[in-house]
């Protein structure tokens, strides 16, 4: 776009600057990889590049910190929340966009207010509420809260997509005798694969990465999700640094892999999620 103004030498300079920036941006992660591969003694050396190689740190960390359990808990909570958010937000967005009723505009605006509510603002009543309902320290309770925080943006994204579907398409299906339920499942949902993917990705990132809500709403180490579980290591100063590094890297791996496979969807999803707010 701005390339037409640019001199070849300038382009080389920009290229070099960008690659240097990428190296600086990657350096913390690469250093952590190095740390995760050091022996315990090498951690306290002053060498930036590790002089030792101990891949067993990964299996040690996996066992010592019970990462299998943390992963399982995170998968359960995130999977449940994403499934419920996608289902409910498709229904609600279609209702708001296509099956208007008296007061539906007001309800929609009410739900949009949810975009403005930070978790820290409501955590105290939420904690009391979840405990009163007997859902404290349960994955169901945490998921319900995730769903509540995930719905507003999801409904907003899907509603604007559904509102843009040509009326003729839906009318034709109706004339064919399809019920509203079938129109939604058979016509609308297949058309909406991209925005549904966006909603799923944004909800996944929110639940998978959340620390604050899980910290308050879970108590027992057996129910901890990944971020709460690994954050516990840092409190124990006796924890060997190389094992912390190995655990942190393993915790990051699922997101790395998903991003490698779905980088377009992730970038589009995050950008759309931001602009919609």
């Amino acid at each position: 776009m701005i390339d037409r103004y640019t001199h070849p030498a300038w382009r080389v300079g920009v290229s070099a600057f960008l690659l240097a920036s990428a190296m600086v941006a990657m350096a913390p992660i690469l250093w952590i990889v190095g740390l995760a591969l050091r022996t315990g003694a090498d951690v306290y050396s002053r060498a930036v590049i590790p002089g030792t190689f101990r891949p067993e740190n990964f299996s040690d960390a996996w066992g010592q910190f019970g990462l299998a359990r943390l992963f399982l808990n995170s998968i359960v909570v995130t999977g449940l929340s994403v499934a419920v958010v996608v289902t409910l937000s498709v229904l609600a967005a279609y209702g708001f966009a296509r099956l208007r009723f008296r007061g539906s505009e007001v309800l929609f605006l009410l739900i949009l207010l949810g975009l403005m509510i930070p978790p820290a603002a409501v955590i105290i009543p939420l904690f009391v509420e979840i405990r009163t309902m007997g859902l404290y320290d349960t994955h169901v309770g945490l998921s319900l809260v995730y769903v509540a925080f995930g719905l507003p943006l999801s409904i907003l994204i899907l509603r604007s997509f559904f509102a843009g579907i040509p009326r003729e398409l839906l009318e034709a299906a109706r004339i064919d005798g399809a019920s509203e339920r079938w129109i939604l499942l058979g016509v609308v949902v297949p058309l909406a694969k991209a925005p549904i993917a966006t909603v799923a990705i944004l909800t996944f990132l929110f639940c998978w990465n959340d620390y604050f809500l899980a910290l308050v709403l879970l108590r027992d180490a057996g129910t901890y999700t990944l971020p709460v579980g690994i954050a516990q290591f840092i409190g124990q100063y006796s924890t060997p640094h190389e094992l912390v590094a190995a655990a942190v890297l393993m915790a990051a791996v699922p997101v790395f892999i998903l991003y490698l496979v779905l980088h377009r969807q992730f970038e589009r999803g995050v950008a759309e999620g931001a602009v919609k707010q």
Binding site: I32, Y211, L226, P227, I230, F233, I234, V244, Y259
Partner: peptide, 11 residues
């Protein structure tokens, strides 16, 4: 951007 802030903080 995609990492949990907890991971970034520990790193």
């Amino acid at each position: 951007v995609l990492l949990s802030p907890v991971i970034v903080a520990l790193m």
